[in-house]
């Protein structure tokens, strides 16, 4: 999911940075009070999650947790994921500094979409809560994969093959994450319900 340095053309890198900076600016305005502390913890979670590797038949993929971050933080997912990716690039050479903008947008934008789609669902009880928590993982992860595939297609790679691979690899990842989200949200609801209200 982390696009490497030197794969994308310059215009995509510039556009990626532009969109990421807009998102980060909006996100920083929403980060206030206790949410900031939560964002710090979620950034650490995101930073570590990419090291958690899940072996899947056709290859290997890692957990993302962008859906969870999006559900709870909304637009603040942008600064959160930006900082998480920055340290992944610096310490583990995942992605790179030039493509940081594109990579942040890829993971944060679908997270924001998941936020608007499911934020009301997860406040309810019953099947809507479970469905919302579970589906937000699919929207965020497969959305990120789709953006990666589109960007690679624009850079000249074959879209169908990449898109296929992304879906093959990330459906199991999204399933695993969806289940984790349900438990995390249940816990948050019980102990810190104020984090789910905006």
């Amino acid at each position: 999911m982390h696009i490497s340095e030197g794969v994308l053309p310059t215009w995509e890198i510039v556009t990626g940075w532009g969109l990421t900076l807009i998102g980060t600016a909006i996100g920083l305005r929403k980060l206030e009070g206790e949410k900031l502390v939560l964002a710090a913890l979620l950034t650490s979670l995101f930073f570590v999650a990419s090291l958690i590797h899940v072996p899947i038949g056709v290859g290997s993929a890692h957990l993302l947790f962008n859906g969870f971050i999006g559900l709870i933080l909304g637009w603040a997912a942008f600064p959160t994921i930006l900082i998480g990716l920055l340290f992944q690039a610096l310490l583990f050479q995942f992605g790179g500094l030039m493509v940081l903008g594109v990579n942040t947008f890829n993971m944060a934008f679908p997270a924001v979409i998941a936020h608007y789609l499911f934020k009301d669902w997860i406040k309810t009880e019953g099947w809507k809560f479970y469905a919302g928590a579970f589906l937000s993982a699919f929207v965020a992860i497969l959305g990120a994969g789709l953006l990666v595939a589109i960007e690679l297609a624009l850079a000249g790679e074959k879209f169908i093959k990449d898109a296929e691979l992304i879906f093959l690899i990330h459906i199991p990842i999204a399933t695993v994450e969806g289940i984790i989200y349900i438990f995390l949200l249940k816990f948050l609801k019980k102990t810190y319900p104020q984090f789910l209200e905006d």
Binding site: S50, H53, V54, S60, A61, H62, Q93
Partner: peptide, 9 residues
């Protein structure tokens, strides 16, 4: 973390 390897570069 204690049970899995890591990825992805």
């Amino acid at each position: 973390l204690s049970t899995v390897a890591f990825a992805h570069k």
